[in-house]
Every structure is written in structure tokens, then in C-alpha cells.
């Protein structure tokens, strides 16, 4: 029998969860995501979100917030649609919808920091200005959400099945 070399299918996004006592993971659905590049100040003021955005292991909260990716780029995340058009804005920035491009996972529990230790090289004692980092070997956005024992991870949608499988494997060892 040929060796199985394919990644498993991504579990049902609406219902599948991972629970090992010290760690609980689920797929966050229904979030709208917008990549804002360039001079972001005017647009973030209009949307009433932070122009700085949270960095790696920084704390985000609320139904609408921003995540810092680079010196001139942030990701706006919202539970509802933002009143903003895709494309170039005369205020000096460009907006791209990322809702379908990035899968969002929320992981909570007392072993959250242990998971971050296993998946990244970030220092837990400080925060980094950009939330973009390597997590489990792939590019991801990583920040805390609502409290210190809850993180959110955004990964490329095409790598979401791999990331979920990595979560299942590592969480079984915690």
C-alpha cells in the first residue's frame, strides 16, 4: 500500500475543535480581514481602529482591531464588514480584502505559552512590533486576544490543514 503523503483535509471550520484539557483550539469564522498598506493613519482614524496595531504576543481586544505586519502595513480584523473599498485610496494607502486568504485559529488554555515556545523562537517576556513571525515553520500572524492565555494565529489558507495537523500532534504531547 502506498504511503499516505497528503495532508488531511481541514476539519469542518464551524464545528471542529481541539480539546486536550490544558489547550483548546478552534477555527474562528466570520471575521473580515483587510490588508492596509502605505500611509494608514487617515483610514484607521476613519474606521476608528488603532493605527499602530498589536505586534507579536501583543494583546488585542474587542470586535474590531488592527494587527501590525510591517513598517507600512497593518491588517484590520472585524466581526462585521468594514465600510472601506478595496483598491487605492487618495489618503495614500491601498486596501486588499484578505478574508478568504487567511485562516484564523484561536487557541486558549494554560498551555498556550508552551505551545508558542514549541512553535516559535519568540521571547515570551517581551513583545515585538510586528505580529508576523514563523510559527510551526510557516509564516503566521501571532498575538494574544482578550487575555494572556488566549492567542490568535492567522495563517495562509492553503497551509491551514497543515497547521491544524501540527496543532493536533503537538497538543497531544502537552
Amino acid at each position: 500500500m502506498a504511503e499516505q503523503r497528503n495532508w488531511q483535509r481541514l476539519p469542518d471550520r464551524e464545528t471542529k475543535t481541539l480539546d486536550v484539557g490544558v489547550l483548546h483550539a478552534r477555527n474562528v469564522t466570520g471575521l473580515s480581514q483587510y490588508l492596509i498598506s502605505g500611509a494608514t493613519g487617515d483610514l484607521t482614524s476613519r474606521l476608528d481602529v488603532s493605527s499602530e496595531g498589536v505586534g507579536a504576543l501583543g494583546l488585542a481586544s474587542g470586535a474590531r482591531y488592527t494587527v501590525r505586519l510591517a513598517r507600512d502595513r497593518i491588517l484590520a480584523v472585524s466581526v462585521d464588514e468594514l465600510p472601506v473599498e478595496s483598491g487605492w485610496h487618495v489618503s495614500g494607502c491601498a486596501v486588499s480584502r484578505m478574508t478568504g486568504a487567511l485562516e484564523v485559529f484561536e487557541i486558549s488554555g494554560t498551555a498556550c505559552d508552551e505551545l508558542v515556545k514549541r512553535g516559535t523562537t519568540l521571547s515570551l517576556s517581551g513583545s515585538s512590533r510586528s505580529a508576523a513571525t514563523l510559527f510551526a515553520g510557516i509564516s503566521a500572524l501571532l498575538y494574544r486576544y482578550q487575555d494572556q492565555d488566549r492567542i490568535r494565529v492567522h495563517v495562509d489558507r492553503g497551509l491551514a490543514a497543515y497547521y491544524w495537523e501540527w496543532l493536533e500532534t503537538v497538543s497531544a504531547e502537552l
Binding site: A70, T121, S128, S130, T133
Partner: peptide
């Protein structure tokens, strides 16, 4: 592992550079 100082992000692993 070696840490490199990104002027924007601060110290990060060499594998990110």
C-alpha cells in the same frame, strides 16, 4: 540559534532572515 536585530521588530531568529 542566532538572534538578528530587525530595526523594526527587534531581535528575531536568524531563520526569519
Amino acid at each position: 540559534m542566532q538572534l538578528f536585530p530587525c530595526p523594526f521588530c527587534g531581535p528575531r531568529s536568524e531563520s526569519e532572515f
